[in-house]
């Protein structure tokens, strides 16, 4: 009755679920959709939180439920899994390209490189999403949401946001 084709159908449906704060990204682009499995007749959708205090997680859970119900799927539960911990390294290439087009610089370093750099204050300059220049500077490590930092481009003279390495 139910098999792997249903699971891939559900996966496909869930690729439509967007991040409420960065709507160009889907949960698949972000890498927070961890698994879809059928357990005792119930589809278990595993997602993992991004930033610990991110209020979007609740909205994402609700949006997942909405998409599934709209498509006639009732027997599911959404489960939050902590391990392994999410990192911005999991954002897909497609996701990074979408961010750039949207005017947000994607995470510029791997989490590991970043962790070393931030403690020494030697972070690499982030490439401007508008003109690509690297003569940019950090104006604030904290921005409008938990996942963004603020930068300024000295080439095209525009402020821009960066999706923080995490």
């Amino acid at each position: 009755m139910t098999d792997t084709s249903d699971i891939s159908h559900i996966r496909n449906l869930l690729t439509q679920v967007q991040d409420p704060e960065v709507p160009v990204l889907t949960i698949a682009d972000l890498g927070i959709l961890r698994d879809v499995a059928l357990i005792d007749g119930t589809y278990e959708i595993k997602i993992t939180p991004t930033f610990t205090g991110c209020p979007a997680m609740k909205a994402i859970e609700e949006n997942i439920a909405e998409v599934l119900v709209e498509n006639g799927i009732q027997n599911f539960k959404v489960r939050m899994v902590m391990s392994p911990a999410w990192t911005t390294d999991w954002i897909s290439e497609l996701g990074r390209e979408k961010l750039r087009k949207y005017g947000i610089a994607p995470p510029s370093q791997s989490t590991e490189e970043h962790l070393k750099a931030i403690l020494t204050g030697k972070n690499k300059a982030v490439a401007c999403p508008f003109c690509g220049a690297v003569n940019t500077r950090l104006t604030s490590a904290f921005g409008s949401t938990a996942c963004k930092a603020l930068h300024y481009c000295d080439n095209c003279h525009q402020p821009f946001e960066e999706f923080k390495c995490h």
């Binding site: 939180p49 930033f51 610990t52 391990s83 392994p84 911990a85 403690l119 490590a141 923080k164 995490h166």
Partner: peptide
């Protein structure tokens, strides 16, 4: 371990700031 791995990345920003 998973909670800590997530938190430490945020703590790094707090140390810097």
């Amino acid at each position: 371990a998973a909670i800590a791995a997530k938190s430490v990345k945020e703590v790094a920003y707090h140390v810097r700031h």
